[in-house]
Simulated scan of single mutants.
Amino acid sequence: MNETDVVGLVQDMLLDTQDVQDFLDELARFSAESISGPRGRIYCGVTLLRHRSAATVASSNDHAQAVDEIQYQFGDGPCLRSCREGVLVHVRDLDAQNRCGQEDAINLIKSGSSPRNLKLRDIAAAIVESAGGGTVTTHFD
């Protein structure tokens, strides 16, 4: 598909949708499906950054929405960085990139909890829940 084809499809999408919300939802789904391929599935979210607050206004699916929510909790992430700095942020395959030991994982969680005065267990629980691990329980609960 060339650039002219994409422009035509997006124009048709704009004309065929009822309102801006429908258009953005369809654009996010179309973008994710168009870029996904044999190397993996792509997720797409549309982030609105206004007055230093961010919100996802459209996403290709629930996973994209959940990833955006994690960024908002931490106040940082690829989408927020791209919005703030006006740069393209490339996110590599997280499964291959983020394999780390327990000490590295704890240090990453500490770096997210300390400046925000959040408990490590709350940060860890949010990460597990957002990754589809369900509600976190411990033997203390």
Results as ranks from 00 to 15, higher is better:
residue 1 M to G: 15
residue 3 E to P: 02
residue 4 T to D: 02
residue 5 D to Y: 09
residue 7 V to S: 09
residue 8 G to V: 04
residue 8 G to Y: 10
residue 9 L to S: 14
residue 10 V to W: 07
residue 12 D to L: 13
residue 13 M to C: 12
residue 13 M to P: 06
residue 13 M to H: 10
residue 14 L to I: 06
residue 15 L to W: 01
residue 17 T to P: 01
residue 18 Q to H: 03
residue 20 V to A: 15
residue 20 V to N: 11
residue 21 Q to Y: 11
residue 21 Q to M: 07
residue 22 D to R: 10
residue 24 L to G: 04
residue 30 F to M: 10
residue 30 F to A: 12
residue 31 S to W: 02
residue 32 A to K: 12
residue 33 E to G: 13
residue 33 E to H: 15
residue 33 E to P: 13
residue 34 S to G: 15
residue 37 G to P: 00
residue 38 P to C: 03
residue 38 P to Y: 07
residue 38 P to L: 10
residue 39 R to T: 13
residue 39 R to I: 11
residue 39 R to S: 13
residue 41 R to M: 15
residue 44 C to T: 15
residue 44 C to V: 15
residue 46 V to A: 04
residue 48 L to T: 08
residue 49 L to A: 14
residue 49 L to H: 07
residue 49 L to I: 12
residue 51 H to S: 14
residue 51 H to E: 15
residue 52 R to G: 09
residue 52 R to Y: 05
residue 53 S to A: 13
residue 54 A to Q: 01
residue 55 A to K: 07
residue 55 A to D: 03
residue 55 A to S: 09
residue 56 T to R: 12
residue 56 T to W: 01
residue 57 V to Y: 00
residue 58 A to N: 01
residue 58 A to F: 00
residue 59 S to F: 01
residue 60 S to Y: 01
residue 60 S to H: 00
residue 60 S to D: 04
residue 62 D to I: 03
residue 62 D to Q: 06
residue 62 D to E: 10
residue 63 H to M: 14
residue 64 A to N: 04
residue 64 A to E: 01
residue 65 Q to W: 10
residue 66 A to R: 15
residue 69 E to G: 03
residue 70 I to R: 04
residue 70 I to H: 03
residue 71 Q to I: 00
residue 71 Q to E: 14
residue 72 Y to C: 06
residue 74 F to C: 14
residue 74 F to H: 11
residue 75 G to Y: 00
residue 76 D to I: 05
residue 77 G to A: 08
residue 78 P to D: 11
residue 78 P to Y: 10
residue 82 S to K: 04
residue 82 S to Y: 06
residue 82 S to G: 08
residue 83 C to N: 14
residue 83 C to V: 05
residue 83 C to M: 12
residue 84 R to V: 15
residue 86 G to V: 06
residue 86 G to T: 07
residue 86 G to D: 10
residue 86 G to Y: 03
residue 88 L to G: 02
residue 88 L to V: 13
residue 89 V to Q: 13
residue 89 V to R: 09
residue 90 H to W: 12
residue 91 V to W: 01
residue 92 R to A: 15
residue 96 A to W: 00
residue 96 A to S: 12
residue 98 N to P: 01
residue 99 R to H: 04
residue 103 E to V: 08
residue 106 I to P: 01
residue 107 N to I: 02
residue 107 N to G: 03
residue 108 L to F: 04
residue 108 L to S: 08
residue 110 K to V: 14
residue 110 K to W: 09
residue 111 S to D: 10
residue 111 S to I: 02
residue 113 S to A: 15
residue 115 P to D: 04
residue 117 N to L: 10
residue 120 L to Y: 06
residue 120 L to M: 11
residue 120 L to R: 00
residue 123 I to M: 11
residue 124 A to F: 04
residue 124 A to P: 05
residue 124 A to Y: 03
residue 125 A to D: 00
residue 125 A to S: 13
residue 126 A to S: 14
residue 126 A to P: 00
residue 127 I to H: 05
residue 128 V to L: 11
residue 129 E to W: 02
residue 129 E to M: 08
residue 130 S to P: 07
residue 132 G to A: 08
residue 133 G to Y: 08
residue 136 V to F: 05
residue 137 T to S: 11
residue 137 T to L: 07
residue 137 T to G: 01
residue 138 T to S: 15
residue 139 H to S: 11
residue 141 D to N: 09
residue 141 D to C: 04
